[in-house]
C-alpha cells in the first residue's frame, strides 16, 4: 500500500502574528516555519504503519504545495521517515486551488490512502482533504482517530456525535485525521536526518487552477477586557456574573 500525506507549512504556534502591505498580507519576517501539527501526527502514524511489519503499508510519500521556502519542512518529513517528498511549485491563494494541485498529482500515482490533518494552523480552513477527495471522486472519511488492518482491509475509526464509528474501506480513500491517529509527533533521530539528505525531493510544476476565494484584509482582535478577579470565597458571585453579566448560563 502506498500512502500520501499532505503537508502544510505553517508558522510556529507561538508566532506573534503580524501583517504588512496595509494589513493585507501575513508578515513572514522572522517567522519559524513548522510542519502543520496535525499533518505531523498524520505523518507519524503513516511512518509507523510502514515500519510495523504486520500490515500492508510499503511506501509513504509527502506532498506540499508551495514555493522553495517550504523545502526545509519537507526535508524534516523525510527525516521523520517519509520515503519521498514532492513539492508542487505554486503559490496558491486558497484551499480550492491547493486541493486541485494535489489531486492532479495524485491522479497520476496510485495511492491507497491520501491523509490530511484536520486543520492547518494558519488559515484554519479544514478544507483541502475533502476537496482533494471530491476532485478525485473518491471516498473521504473525516474526524479519523485510528486505523488498523484486518486481512489486508483497512478499518478506520472516526469520531461521530454519539460515539465512535468503524468504517471498512474497500479501495482508495482520503482520510482527514485528528489526534488519536497518532498521540505524539515523531522526533527525527540523527540517522533519519542523515538519510533525509539522500532521499528524493521532487519538484513538479503546477497545473492550471483558479482560486475561488481571496483574503482581502486582516486585523488583530480587539484587546480582551482585563480579567475580572473573583475571590475564592465568592463563588456565588462568580456564578451570578456568569449568569447576568456574561450571560452564558
Amino acid at each position: 500500500m502506498k500512502l500520501l500525506v499532505c503537508i502544510s507549512n505553517v508558522p510556529d504556534t507561538t508566532t506573534k502574528v503580524k501583517f504588512t502591505d496595509n494589513q493585507t498580507k501575513f508578515d513572514s519576517i522572522g517567522v519559524q516555519w513548522i510542519i502543520n501539527p496535525w499533518d505531523e501526527l498524520a505523518l507519524t502514524r503513516a511512518v509507523d504503519l510502514k515500519e510495523e511489519s504486520n500490515n500492508p503499508v510499503s511506501e509513504v510519500l509527502v506532498v506540499n504545495v508551495g514555493s522553495a521556502e517550504t523545502e526545509p519542512t519537507l526535508r524534516k518529513c523525510l527525516a521523520i521517515g517519509a520515503d519521498k517528498a514532492i513539492r508542487i511549485d505554486s503559490d496558491t491563494k486558497d484551499a480550492f486551488q491547493t486541493a486541485k494541485q494535489i489531486a492532479a498529482m495524485a491522479q497520476k500515482e496510485a495511492f491507497d490512502f491520501i491523509i490530511c490533518g484536520i486543520e492547518s494552523g494558519d488559515y484554519n480552513s479544514s478544507s483541502v482533504g475533502g476537496m482533494v477527495a471530491e476532485f478525485l471522486d473518491t471516498a473521504s472519511i473525516s474526524s479519523v482517530s485510528d486505523i488498523r488492518f484486518e486481512g489486508g482491509k483497512a478499518i478506520v475509526e472516526r469520531d461521530a456525535d454519539a460515539g465512535k464509528e468503524y468504517l471498512q474501506v474497500d479501495g482508495t480513500a482520503v482520510l482527514i485525521v485528528q489526534k488519536g491517529f497518532a498521540q505524539e509527533p515523531k522526533i527525527p533521530n540523527m540517522r533519519g536526518i542523515m538519510m533525509a539528505r539522500q532521499k528524493p525531493l521532487e519538484v513538479i510544476s503546477a497545473v492550471d487552477a483558479n482560486a475561488l476565494t481571496e483574503y482581502t484584509g486582516f486585523r488583530l482582535p480587539e484587546p480582551k477586557a482585563k480579567v475580572k478577579m473573583v475571590s475564592p470565597d465568592q463563588m456565588k458571585e462568580l456564578v451570578n456574573f456568569l449568569s447576568t453579566e456574561a450571560k452564558v448560563l
Binding site: 494558519d122 482560486a211 484584509g217 482582535p221
Partner: peptide, 14 residues
C-alpha cells in the same frame, strides 16, 4: 478567525 484565533481575516468569495 485565522491563525487559531490570533487574527481576523476578511475573505471575498468570487
Amino acid at each position: 478567525r485565522v491563525f487559531s484565533g490570533k487574527a481576523l481575516a476578511q475573505v471575498r468569495i468570487n
